[in-house]
């Protein structure tokens, strides 16, 4: 049966909204950003916040270990069969932008094996400010920076900060200790991003991921509308 579908769909699927069997595929959201900014912690918090209401899965892109996938497994945010690690050959941005084949395969295998899914979170390996996801891999992307990385990062901009569908400024609880000016970060982000949304969050606080989870819910609603 599976074979027939392949024959009926001459083009390989990537950004197509339908799976080979005609059903709607999961919404795919990418999370990118520098090393240590809190991508994995945000993914874990999102899984906890959304797993009761959505069928979801995660693809991690670790650089040379399975550290991120194992963190998520250890935290038991999802059953292990819903978490897949992709190996990126020392080039995390290649795997999410220039050659997305391994990530597409991981997403499709998850849909085949544990689907139907509403949402797949694709977490990039920690990278630099120019790393963005291909539109062939994700439908929306989140860029995660943190206050400890320097409060001049929003001003510096770059494709991730300037064009991501959502910018998260993480670890706001650390601002007083590292001398980061949150007001300035928010204002600089507004300057480079225009109307695109920015969330300042601390996952240390109660329900710290709420705003981001709400943004994901809006995306899901638009995807399934």
């Amino acid at each position: 049966m599976h074979l027939d579908h392949h024959l009926e769909s001459p083009a390989a699927v990537s950004a197509d909204a339908r799976r080979p069997d005609g059903s709607r595929r999961a919404l795919r959201i990418g999370l990118g950003g520098p090393v240590g900014s809190g991508k994995t912690a945000t993914v874990a918090a999102l899984c906890r916040a959304l797993r009761e209401e959505l069928s979801l899965a995660v693809v991690t892109n670790d650089i040379y270990t399975r550290e991120d996938a194992e963190f998520l497994l250890r935290e038991a945010v999802l059953p292990p069969e819903r978490i897949t690690a992709v190996e990126t050959g020392a080039c995390p941005h290649t795997a999410i932008r220039d050659d997305i084949s391994a990530n597409l395969e991981a997403v499709e295998d998850l849909e085949d094996e544990v689907g139907p899914l509403d949402l797949v979170l694709v977490e990039s390996g920690g990278d630099n400010l120019t790393a963005t996801f291909s539109r062939g891999l994700v439908d929306a992307q989140v860029f995660v920076i943190d206050v400890a990385g320097g409060d001049d990062i929003p001003r510096k901009g770059g494709p991730g900060v300037a064009t991501a569908d959502l910018l998260i400024v993480n670890k706001t609880d650390l601002a007083p200790y590292v001398g980061s000016d949150l007001g300035r970060m928010a204002a600089d982000a507004k300057t480079v991003r225009g109307e695109l949304p920015v969330v300042l969050q601390s996952l240390r606080s109660e329900d710290g991921v709420r705003e981001v989870a709400d943004w994901v819910r809006e995306r899901i609603a638009a995807w399934t509308a």
Binding site: A12, S14, E105
Partner: peptide, 20 residues
Amino acid sequence: QLMRAARATWPSPELDAVAS
């Protein structure tokens, strides 16, 4: 992975048959 890229780049019934 090569099959995915090749089918998108040079669509062909023969490639579809190998993929299936």
